[in-house]
Amino acid sequence: MAQGGDWQQDVLRELADGAQDGTPLPSRPAASEAIPGGTAEAIPGGAAPDEAPESIPAAPPVPRQSHDPRVAAPAPESVPTVDPRLAIALGRPQHGDSVARRTGRSLRRLAASAGQEVAEQTRLAQEVQLPVTTGRVVAVTSIRGGVGKSTVSALLGRTFNHYRHDPVLTLEADTALGTLPVRMGAESVRWSCGDLARILTPAMQLTDITGYLVPVSDGGWLLPAGQGRVGAPLDVRTYRTVTLALRRYFAVTVVDCETLPGDVARTAMDTAHARVVVAPMTAEGVNGTRQVLDWLAQLPHSALASTVVALSANSPDTTLDPKAAAAHLREPGVPVVLLPYDRHLAQGGTIHTAMLGKDTRTAAVRLAAEAMHRAVRVR
């Protein structure tokens, strides 16, 4: 495996040069905002694409003036992710765990050794930070909408953003009025996948690319599929153009796909390095997800070996036995990570990692570790 440290330093140097030019850079999260609590130390791990970005002059990104004829057209206007008339109705974010539950956990922590828990968190952090030689793509999809697909994508993006020291991108490949920008905390969106596909050139540097992306508060970047309006769906050609080009700049790209069996979702699942299938904790949801796993097993390459299932509980009153459901999904040989019901996630809106329940934070890191392990080590 090639070493990625030199490439990582080149990327950080590009970002530093961009900051001197006035290009805004996103802030990194503080240690206190770690998922799941900052107990694991960060372990350096660089990412290296097939070749380092060329250091030749490139047209600077909008809003700076460009002489490239492909970007001569007026830039799209920024559009709020949430209608201002609705934003005033958003309630105050609540913590994923109740006060009683947090208090009880604190008392148990005082009475028992936390050594085993810290060791497990450290192991998961090491998996999330695995070094890569080329950009890795993690595709997230589900059998239907409304089961938490975009929520899982946002959790993965934020987890990778926190633990890794190389660039991470969360990309929306679902134009059906997706919620990923809202979940990632973007106040407005401007450039979309389709816009970027028309102006990408091999000469662009990372600082040029990030000028078209939305910086995420916890670190990393977001590329939305659209501006929250009903319009032409994202096509397979545009998806391939964008993902193949951006793998050069980002160590990890989390793709929030459309639901199966859409063409873009099928393409993303077939070409990704790792796949996360979100299954709702209902009988029909688990049954449909099992059918997806059987389909993945029939693909020409070993798609099933690089797949993880996120079993998501969207209600506190679910009656399905989670152990029995997980056992059914594990039969084809895939790992299953239980994402428990979380009041903060159920509330909707921006995900604040510090307000997630402890079990949710732990599950997010475990899911990211399982996906990264398969993206890097499974062939």
Rank of each mutant, 00 (worst) to 15 (best):
V11P: 00
R366N: 14
T179V: 04
S306G: 07
A325Q: 06
R164D: 09
T103Y: 13
A34S: 14
T122P: 03
H328Q: 14
G211V: 14
A346W: 10
R101C: 02
L223C: 05
E331Y: 09
R108P: 01
G104W: 05
E172Q: 10
E33W: 13
G157W: 05
A305V: 04
L107V: 09
Q121G: 12
V309H: 07
P84N: 14
T201W: 11
R343D: 12
P202L: 12
T201E: 15
A283P: 01
R28A: 09
T175I: 06
V378S: 08
D256P: 00
M184V: 11
G115D: 14
G22A: 06
H344R: 08
D235K: 04
R237L: 08
P261I: 01
T259W: 04
L124H: 02
T360P: 09
S312K: 14
R183A: 15
S113C: 01
S66T: 04
G18E: 00
G228C: 04
Y239N: 00
Q227G: 08
A279K: 04
G96F: 02
A173S: 07
A313F: 12
V334H: 08
T259A: 12
D270E: 10
L90K: 14
P29R: 13
E370A: 14
A30F: 01
Q227S: 07
V79N: 13
V337W: 06
P167F: 01
N161V: 01
P36N: 09
E172N: 07
S113K: 02
L339V: 15
T289Y: 03
G46A: 15
Q9G: 02
T39D: 12
M1H: 06
H373N: 15
P53G: 12
L222H: 12
P36C: 08
R158E: 08
A52D: 13
L246T: 00
G348W: 02
T39Y: 11
